[in-house]
Design a protein around this nucleic acid. Structure first.
Lengths: 225, 225
DNA sequence: GGCTATAACCTGTCTAACAGATTTTCGAGT
DNA sequence: ACTCGAAAATCTGTTAGACAGGTTATAGCC
């Protein structure tokens, strides 16, 4: 097993600092020396972590001045999930990852008021079903379908309908394995959907795409931890 | 202006080595010490460059063994074509834009030698058909289908098959309108496909995705200028 | 208060070293 | 000859300490 590298830990540690200290965009991180001391590693390791953070667009280094927050990691990490590592047994998730993310983006851009109302209705139905501890696969699917519809592009529905039998099979299998869903999982699933719908409501295309990717990524993780 | 960092030069230098030495995916790069000597910098700088290359998915470090090529680097043109401007009458192109670009990327990453040969065959068939001035819709479709197959993920084929009737209808309509295809258009279409296949052959994921996007974008423009 | 020189701090870079993982080499034994 | 295993050679991961040169803060002077 490839033992974890210290620079990975430093990377995670710095992300943690940005999040927990609530460093705003533009704020300066602690100096390399201080970070090294904090994590108990050498400056070289901290620098390697910072190079990666900069490459990920999270920080920016200014010679002689320090490293600065460029964009908050919570809003950025989701965009960098390596699709290449998805097991092909969950192949339909790989396709959904690009297809539904684009659908969410376009829905946020082009949705009419009527389509939005339709999406909100779907969300309400999903909320009710989830809170009454039912499987809710049908409602889940229906919400995703309505988001695809809100793109105004029927071709998205065509592609989705081709995938859904597969997705449903996977979902059912997942629930069969771990029959009881703890309430916090239900709450998380609900929140993920709410965030997507909120972004579409707010006509925030990038936010919608990101929220959808995040939701699918987490969904895959729930099915195959 | 922020003066160029040595690690940036090292990054570019290593990319150059991978390209000019034609290092295959899986091949081992020179050791950090040797790279440092080559570029006249310290090992720490080379390491920072390698961390960035790994973060970009181009190389992979194995402790005690060396750094290995994970995917061939491409020209990072990162041209972004705004799909939002596509008329929904050509909706299936909008879906293909995300779906097939991802398929091309994954095909470049995961294709086996056998799948590659299958793609090359499809390319040869398309070339022959186009050069004999036939419609060649079937061959076009078959090549795209084989690329989707080369992802190793059957879900891509599911989605494609749902879209293709639509795509073919659009293609036929396009040819009916402008019945004669000038030879330079045929040559361009051929070249676009060749670039995609070449990128998949070279195991260059970003290049393959970019080439596919470009091809679809141009294709849409040919149909509706 | 405003201005400037200087000190304090910070990143970018280098050298030299060692631990531990991996690959290669080479020799012993069959 | 051929296999097997151990030692040697390489290689990455990591540390410490140092210095040049850029940036920011401070302190004192007007």
């Amino acid at each position: 097993m490839n033992q974890a590298r210290l620079s990975d830990q430093a990377y995670a540690g710095i992300v943690e600092i940005i999040k927990s200290e609530e460093l705003e965009v533009g704020a300066r991180l602690p100096s390399e020396a201080r970070l090294a001391e904090t994590f108990g590693v050498s400056r070289a390791i901290v620098r390697e972590a910072l190079v990666r953070l900069a490459s990920d667009g999270i920080t920016e280094a200014r010679r002689g001045a320090g490293s600065f927050v460029k964009s908050r990691p919570s809003e950025r990490l989701a965009a960098f999930m390596p699709m290449t590592e998805l097991p092909t047994t969950l192949g339909s998730y790989e396709v959904r990852f690009v297809l539904e993310a684009e659908a969410a983006r376009l829905a946020a851009t082009r949705r009419t008021a009527q389509e939005m109302a339709h999406v909100e209705d779907g969300m309400a139905m999903l909320r009710e079903a989830l809170l009454s501890s039912e499987p809710a696969h049908a409602e889940d699917m229906e919400l995703h379908r309505r988001i695809a519809e809100a793109t105004g592009n029927p071709a998205f529905l065509l592609a989705f309908n081709a995938l859904w039998p597969d997705v449903e099979k996977i979902m059912r299998a997942g629930v069969d394995i771990s029959r009881s869903r703890p309430p916090e999982v239900v709450a998380t699933m609900l929140r993920e959907h709410e965030v997507i719908v909120a972004a579409i409501r707010a006509q925030d295309p990038e936010g919608a795409a990101l929220a959808m990717r995040w939701h699918l990524w987490e969904g895959r993780r729930r099915l195959m931890p």
